[in-house]
Write a protein that binds this DNA or RNA. Structure first.
Length: 295
DNA sequence: GTCCAGGCTTTCC
DNA sequence: GGAAAGCCTGGA
């Protein structure tokens, strides 16, 4: 993909960017460490860097960074090499997705850090987004490293597997509001730290093989593994089925009380290698519109 | 082997 | 008081 880039004063401006709407990208539930500022911009910490993102008319402004960081970190993180226009044209052949895409037209799927993503989605199980965000922030403050201060707020890295593997379960539970998931987090960190599960091998595996490996981690089931594959390993055929996707799929495509596995199978057959993108448009549409929710 | 009920921390609506 | 980007365990 070609972009017009301007570098100036610790900022990168991408002129006339297509298919990138900060609200859609950062509030569609794929990432939990984007914080909205008073001016409507968003700040995150990723790969040991703090970055602020703002859309001004058709331009995207990345602040607190430079050209080499943009090339080495942010270009891949924001999935800027992928042509979302082409993906949207293909998926819009389905009238329901056409509607969902109109609603979340600026969604992109980020390429996030594997370990942080695994732990984040273990925390997400049977949980709510505000509390998930709070737990991840607490874990970072308690066990991560201070990285930078931006706009008066201090940012901490997410701790690595070695650090989390050596924390007492009770302490993790009490200090970070993760509840009964504490034992899953510590056990998973141990298995990864001791290379009992080698997550570095996952990019070389098929989506199915990778999923079987990830599901050996405690606290990682079918849904969490799909999220990790889609959001951290660029496996774009993964289709996480959570309560909202179950509702929206049953509402528009299938009958009530369809089994989760049958929803996955149907979705992969329908959307193929674009299933993960379809999932993200549908999830955002369903949650924002409250599709199928009880009143 | 598959399927299902019940339990799980705590917050949010 | 029910639900929340579910998973684990035990039993049929």
């Amino acid at each position: 993909m070609n972009y017009n880039i301007i570098e100036k004063d610790n900022k990168i401006t991408i002129e006339n960017i297509k298919d990138f709407e900060p609200k859609h990208v950062f509030e569609c539930g794929q990432a939990f460490r984007w914080y909205m500022e008073e001016d409507g911009s968003y700040t995150t910490i990723h790969h040991g860097r703090v970055l602020n993102v703002k859309k001004e008319r058709e331009d995207l402004i990345l602040s607190n960074t430079n050209g080499s960081e943009f090339q080495n970190i942010w270009y891949n993180y924001f999935d800027l090499d992928t042509d979302y226009g082409e993906i949207k044209r293909e998926l819009s052949k389905d009238p329901i997705l056409e509607e969902a895409i109109k609603f979340g037209e600026g969604i992109r799927i980020l390429n996030q850090e594997p370990f942080e993503t695994i732990i984040s989605f273990i925390i997400s199980a049977n949980n709510q987004i505000p509390r998930i965000k709070k737990s991840i922030e607490l874990i970072s403050q308690n066990y991560g490293k201070p990285i930078d201060i931006y706009n008066g707020k201090e940012y901490f890295s997410f701790p690595n597997a070695e650090i989390l593997a050596n924390i007492d379960e009770k302490e993790l539970e009490e200090k970070n509001k993760v509840g009964y998931r504490a034992k899953y987090i510590v056990s998973t960190a141990k298995m990864i730290n001791e290379k009992e599960i080698d997550i570095h091998q996952i990019p070389n595996l098929s989506t199915k093989e990778a999923k079987e490996i990830l599901m050996k981690l405690p606290g990682v089931g079918p849904k969490v593994s799909d999220c990790v594959l889609l959001f951290a390993f660029n496996k774009n055929d993964a289709f996480p089925v959570d309560v909202w996707v179950k509702r929206v799929m049953e509402y528009f495509y299938l009958k009530k009380d369809t089994k989760l596995k049958d929803i996955s199978t149907y979705s992969y057959e329908k959307f193929g290698d674009l299933a993960g993108f379809a999932q993200q448009y549908l999830f955002y549409y369903a949650r924002e519109k409250g599709i199928g929710r009880k009143k």
